[in-house]
């Protein structure tokens, strides 16, 4: 191992550059930046600030409650579009092959997509926090804001995994449609648009099987609006979901090996 080390490129440098350029590339992609930051921000301004008549949802006011739910909605979009969209296009249109023919460590490629998803998730949540605190009446302490941010940043990981799984099975052009077909319904069913308590009973039951429900409940718990379910159940559910998605992505990767595209 020691002898080969001399001839091996610096892998920390590879991971850094891969992530840096993946981030820059996406930042310059207006379709991605505007939609993943713009939609949650727009929804929050509309429902959290403009149509807000100061009533409470459970024990907290609307601006605070919606920080957790639109925060969840935001990290889902940033993670899913950041991973699935890019992966589907790059593997479907030949670019991934060019990279795989090089000695790039494959993990660096996936790590870059995930890091980017997490960073954009953090940016979305920061935007919402700023809006809620400055323009709304979100009464949360600095520590609560930090906890919410960290929770949602961690919560973006299951969706990055889900995005990689989708990216391996969606076509380069159909990926955005596939993401929307999953992303929008599960957001609705998890109470991210209409607060959970107003959803019909059967949707509330379905919600328990959705990752978006579990992360939103942890986030609501942070701002003091959680339902009385223990947090560990949510985390276990999210970990199991992440493992499932990683498994599907790995299966997709192996399936790709023997296939010709382009």
């Amino acid at each position: 191992m020691a002898t080969t080390a001399i001839n091996t490129p610096n892998s920390a440098a590879i991971y850094w550059k891969e992530a840096k350029y993946e981030f820059l590339r996406s930042l310059r992609l207006r379709a991605y930046t505007f939609s993943v930051i713009g939609f949650p921000v727009m929804f929050y301004i509309l429902f959290g600030l403009l149509i807000n008549r100061g009533e409470n949802l459970g024990s907290v006011n609307v601006s605070t409650y919606l920080l957790a739910t639109y925060g969840t909605f935001g990290i889902m979009g940033a993670s899913l579009f950041g991973t699935a969209g890019a992966l589907a296009a790059e593997r479907g249109l030949g670019w991934l092959q060019v990279k795989r023919a090089s000695p790039m460590p494959p993990l660096a490629y996936f790590a870059a997509k995930i890091i980017k998803g997490v960073i954009f998730s953090i940016v979305v949540v920061l935007c919402l926090l700023a809006l809620g605190i400055v323009f709304g009446n979100a009464h949360i302490s600095f520590m609560t804001a930090v906890r919410l941010l960290l929770t949602l940043a961690a919560g973006s990981l299951p969706f990055c995994a889900m995005g990689l799984a989708i990216g391996y099975f969606a076509g380069p052009n159909s990926a955005p449609a596939v993401i929307n077909m999953i992303y929008l319904p599960i957001s609705f069913c998890s109470g991210l648009w209409i607060p959970f308590m107003f959803l019909p009973k059967f949707l509330q039951t379905i919600a328990h099987f959705l990752p978006s429900y579990h992360i939103s409940q942890i986030a609501l718990g942070v701002v003091g609006a959680g339902r009385n379910e223990p947090n560990w159940i949510h985390w276990v559910a999210l970990c199991a979901f992440t493992a499932l998605c990683v498994g599907v992505a790995l299966y997709g990767e192996r399936r790709d090996e023997g296939k010709l595209y382009g």
């Binding site: 001839n7 091996t8 490129p9 610096n10 440098a13 590879i14 550059k17 891969e18 350029y21 820059l24 590339r25 996406s26 310059r28 992609l29 296009a89 790059e90 249109l93 030949g94 670019w95 092959q97 060019v98 023919a101 090089s102 000695p103 790039m104 380069p172 382009g262």
Partner: peptide, 27 residues
């Protein structure tokens, strides 16, 4: 090294950035 037929290369990266990234893969 390989030059393959690619339908789409990431378009929002600069030429020197593409080169910089690929150079980092090699000893």
């Amino acid at each position: 090294g390989a030059m393959l037929q690619v339908a789409k290369v990431p378009e929002t990266m600069r030429v020197r950035e593409h080169i910089d990234l690929f150079r980092s893969y090699y000893p």
